[in-house]
């Protein structure tokens, strides 16, 4: 079963939050670019960026939540996660996107696009340890 969404949004998605990249550079969350994530993962020893394509977006039994099915990485592993509708994902080449951009903007002041089936989101996996 998908993991339950947290009751409230984490503070780092709030517009103006200061984010530290792997090279030490500080950026505001709304200024992050795709390259920031890719370069930070490259500098990280144990984290790997994956491409996760949105396959389905379904209603959830939990109020204000959705179940998103992703196809993750080169093996296209199917992963379902349950998140609040305002939870933002970072889409390659596009930026922050959520299932309900209006609510994300209202709660977090973070400008978002509408997350749709076919969007390719940035996700992380642990590098396999040999």
């Amino acid at each position: 079963p998908p993991a339950s969404p947290s009751a409230s949004m984490p503070p780092y998605f709030m517009r103006g939050s200061i984010i530290q990249l792997a090279d030490g550079e500080l950026k505001r969350v709304e200024d992050l670019k795709t390259e920031d994530f890719i370069q930070s993962a490259e500098l990280s020893g144990d984290l790997k960026i994956d491409s996760s394509t949105v396959e389905r977006i379904d209603c959830s039994h939990t109020p204000d939540a959705v179940v998103i099915q992703f196809s993750v990485g080169e093996h296209k592993a199917q992963v379902r996660v349950e998140v609040l509708v305002e939870y933002p994902f970072f889409v390659f080449g596009q930026g922050w996107s959520s299932c309900c951009p209006d609510k994300t903007t209202q709660l977090l002041e973070l400008s978002c696009a509408k997350l749709s089936v076919g969007d390719v989101c940035i996700s992380l996996t642990l590098r396999s340890i040999r």
């Binding site: 984010i19 920031d36 930070s40 984290l47 992963v79 940035i122 996700s123 992380l124 642990l126």
Partner: peptide, 25 residues
Amino acid sequence: NVEPRSVPVFPWHSLVPFLEPSQSN
């Protein structure tokens, strides 16, 4: 005296979800 207000700094990987299949082969 006014103490300087500390601004929280979050690591970049906090913003990215870990998506891994629940079953491994």
